[in-house]
């Protein structure tokens, strides 16, 4: 694996109560690359993604064993400020979830609560985030209209802009395009290519063609285990593991 490593897990087991959801997962995810996690429904791929911003913590009975590192720091240490962690590690969900406020306020929300706008022009922060999310030209004349008036694809890019406004380092995307039409999907995918220069992106998707199109590395999770992790071209042209091959050729799943 080339280049510096941004995210890492070492022998991670993850439990919901007695249920072992992730089994002994060790992975090293490189900086400024797009890493796709694929696998059948219920395999644990979303749970895996949520390790990195401790989103699983809020669920009752959740327990992590092993280490989850960002830039070499264990984020499950007791001295970690989870609010700061989530600023650093933004997340985009399957269904666009804009706040029922204006477009401007959606993007300004994060900078306001984190106090990032002090000494800076909030307008500039918002514009910058919307530009990075490739949404600015479409919304610049209606920033104070409700975000809910936007199309699904625009709402999803707004959610990405909302993440970017707090200057994160990592973007976690949980099936970000699965509720969108094909053109909006391609826009999000194209956007991701631009974003990886500045961010480390991990995307969970059940759409294998999407993983093949967008990612540099692909991991295949099956029944809570990381079966194979390799450059995307290798996974889709000649995977090493029979299970991976069966899954990506549609022989099961």
């Amino acid at each position: 694996m080339e280049g510096p490593i941004k995210l890492e897990t070492q022998n991670v087991n993850f439990y919901f109560g007695d249920n072992l959801v992730l089994k002994n997962i060790s992975i090293r995810i490189p900086s400024n690359r797009i890493t796709a996690i694929i696998g059948p429904s219920g395999c644990g791929k979303s749970t895996f993604l949520r390790l990195f911003n401790r989103m699983n913590d809020v669920l009752e009975g959740a327990r992590v064993e092993g280490k989850v590192l960002i830039d070499g720091v264990d984020i499950y240490n007791s001295n970690i400020d989870v609010a700061m962690l989530r600023r650093k590690v933004g997340m985009v969900f399957q269904k666009p979830n804009p706040f029922p406020t204006s477009i401007f306020d959606n993007v300004a929300y994060g900078p306001r609560i984190h106090g990032l706008h002090k000494g800076k022009d909030l307008r500039e922060i918002v514009e910058n985030a919307l530009r990075q999310a490739a949404l600015w030209d479409e919304v610049k004349d209606k920033l104070h209209r409700s975000a809910l008036e936007l199309s699904g694809g625009q709402q999803q890019r707004l959610c990405i802009a909302r993440c970017l406004a707090v200057e994160p380092e990592v973007l976690l995307m949980d099936e970000p395009a699965s509720a969108l039409d094909p053109i909006s999907t391609l826009k999000i995918e194209e956007l991701m290519q631009g974003l990886k220069e500045r961010y480390t992106i991990v995307i969970v998707t059940h759409n294998m063609q999407e993983a093949a199109r967008v990612s540099d590395y692909t991991g295949f999770i099956y029944k809570g285990e990381l079966v194979e992790f390799a450059p995307t071209v290798d996974i889709f042209e000649h995977p090493q593991n029979k299970l991976t091959e069966d899954y990506i050729t549609g022989r099961f799943g």
């Binding site: 042209e237 000649h238 995977p239 091959e245 050729t249």
Partner: peptide, 9 residues
């Protein structure tokens, strides 16, 4: 059909 892996080969 978007063949993958061994099918693609």
């Amino acid at each position: 059909q978007q063949p993958m892996a061994k099918d693609l080969r």
